[in-house]
């Protein structure tokens, strides 16, 4: 994914669709307004419902936070692990060593071809016959393995986007390949890599709702528990959806602020 100059007449049309919530920037006023409307609106509805009909809405709000913590825990741990996996996968994908390159490429192809939900089942139930991992750990591993493949492609693209003269300059000064990577290439790649990684972060947070199937008490699972006791499905899932929405909108806002900060330095 080489950066494309959108103002250039010969540039091909780029359709940018990310898996996460759209990340608003100041340049895109329509989206910026939509972000504000959605964010303020969601909070207003949550507050209004809890205030006007405390039972069940306020009860739901009191019941869910444990799950929110689990959702965050799974997301953050999985992101952290997937970044490490992604870094090494990306390095493997550009490696001239055929074995490393082959392993990294195979990993990316295989993982990207299997739905995350199936991977979750596979690690928890199928592999559960060999090693019995706690549900949360299975969930974190499955998410990290899955997202590591996508992160790997992001790292690869980011590293390849650094001009090849940079590696040559570093090597000509006597640095080893690893030293050049660490001190010259990766610090420059980070600028290109951060925005898509932010997208993955938001996407992973949403996908973390899948782990509720493995008896992990995340946000969605807690909602389900409440709903099945109280039979107030409509009310519960309305709240769950609104809370996911508020979190992802909030996250995408933070990411867009971070992007602006990085771009200032250019």
């Amino acid at each position: 994914m080489a950066p494309i100059d959108k103002n250039h007449p010969a540039a091909p049309t780029v359709i940018e669709i990310s898996e996460g919530a759209a990340i608003p920037t100041r340049r895109d006023m329509g989206l910026f307004t939509a972000w504000r409307t959605a964010f303020v609106g969601a909070i207003a509805i949550v507050v209004y419902l809890a205030w006007s009909r405390p039972k069940p809405y306020l009860e739901i709000l009191q019941f869910i936070p444990d799950g929110l913590f689990v959702t965050f825990q799974v997301t953050v741990e999985a992101i952290f692990l997937s970044l490490i996996i992604g870094l090494f996968t990306g390095l493997g994908r550009i490696s001239k060593n055929r074995l490393l390159n082959g392993i990294a490429s195979l990993y990316v192809e295989v993982i990207r071809g299997i739905p995350l939900l199936v991977q979750l089942f596979y690690i928890y139930y199928a592999l559960g016959r060999i090693v019995n991992l706690p549900a949360v750990i299975s969930a974190v591993i499955a998410m990290a393995v899955c997202y590591g493949a996508y992160m790997g492609e992001i790292f690869r693209a980011g590293i390849e986007a650094v001009h090849k003269g940079q590696m040559e300059a570093a090597r000509s000064l006597g640095m080893t390949h690893v030293q050049a990577m660490v001190h010259v290439i990766l610090p420059q790649a980070v600028k290109t890599i951060l925005p898509p990684i932010g997208n993955e972060f938001v996407a992973l947070l949403k996908d973390s709702s899948l782990v509720s199937i493995l008896a992990v008490s995340d946000l969605l699972r807690r909602g389900r528990e409440y709903a099945s006791e109280s039979f107030s499905y409509f009310e519960t899932y309305t709240m769950v959806a609104l809370i996911y929405l508020i979190i992802t909108l909030f996250l995408s806002k933070i990411i867009s602020i971070m992007e602006d900060r990085i771009n200032v330095g250019r």
């Binding site: 001009h163 940079q166 000509s172 006597g174 640095m175 001190h183």
Partner: peptide, 28 residues
């Protein structure tokens, strides 16, 4: 062997002084 390139290839994320320091510190 010192090498000077057509396209300079300075490290854009480092200041001028850091550019000149870097290899000395890492390699030398």
């Amino acid at each position: 062997i010192g090498m000077v390139f057509q396209s300079f290839n300075l490290f854009p994320h480092k200041t001028v002084l850091e550019n000149v320091n870097m290899a000395q510190m890492i390699v030398r």
